[in-house]
Design a protein around this nucleic acid. Sequence first.
DNA 1: GGCATGATGGCCT
DNA 2: GGCCATCATGCCA
Length: 190
Amino acid sequence: MTRLRGDAVSAARWLLGARLVRELPDGTRLSGVIVETEAYDQEDPASHTYRGPTQRNAAMFGPAGHAYVYLSYGVHWCLNVTVGPVGFGAGVLLRALEPLEGTDVMERLRGGRKGRLLTNGPGKLGQALAVTSELYGHDLALPPLQVAGGGSVPEEDVVTTTRIGVNRGADALRRFYVRDSLWVSRRVHG
DNA sequence: GGCATGATGGCCT
DNA sequence: GGCCATCATGCCA
């Protein structure tokens, strides 16, 4: 994961195709392939780190390759991978996953929803993998939540678009997804 | 101490 | 396509 020590955009592209593996307390193994990401860094007005370090965003100012978890709209837990040298204040939001293992358990965690509805959105992904604030700051090289691989999607298969749901910095091309994946939150241009 | 504000999702029309 | 639940955070008073 040395690649995560660079800039957020490179990290976001690199994370496409990486595998995300979650182990539940009962030993159940859930996993999938990351197919959609967004890049955020301190120079970006849409980033939680834009106004400098706070208690909430501290993980993004820590070492790369750790989890930055936050509650969105008071409802949804969203998972980011921290990026850059210590003090950099950057991260990559994981927005969608192609499920591989434990889809039956993911369905249960998602209230019976199936197929693409399982993980095609950051809040859905968080719920499907039982991500909560317990994993805040967790080292993603270790169980129970790991990122492995990355850099496996060829340049020509990566689509670059504007991000979803942001107001400031709305025209920045910082969302990336795997072109032919059926598992992304939405295609074309956000 | 109070209040406006989301890196969203689900349900309703 | 539109509405709104729900709450931690952060900025302001």
